[in-house]
């Protein structure tokens, strides 16, 4: 199970299996420059592998005011 915290929505989603950051971004129709992908305080590029038990923060970057 992979837990994803979406920011700024402050919403939690869970996925039984995701192989890579790119697969995660695809779930939200995001390009890899749309959001920071953070695991354990570290930034992940789109080719990085995800593991069962990962807790990921997906922080969108477009500011609106």
């Amino acid at each position: 199970m992979i837990i994803v915290r979406l920011e700024p929505e402050d919403k939690i989603d869970t996925y039984p299996k995701l192989n890579t950051v790119q697969q995660l971004l695809n779930k939200y129709d995001l390009f890899y420059t749309d959001a920071l992908v953070i695991r354990d305080g570290e930034l992940l590029t789109q080719d990085r592998k995800l593991n069962d038990g990962d807790e990921i923060t997906l922080r969108k970057v477009i500011s609106v005011g």
């Binding site: 420059t33 749309d34 920071l36 953070i38 930034l43 922080r59 970057v61 477009i62 500011s63």
Partner: peptide, 9 residues
């Protein structure tokens, strides 16, 4: 914006 967000993080 992406570059700035990465830097601040």
């Amino acid at each position: 914006e992406f570059e700035s967000a990465n830097f601040s993080f």
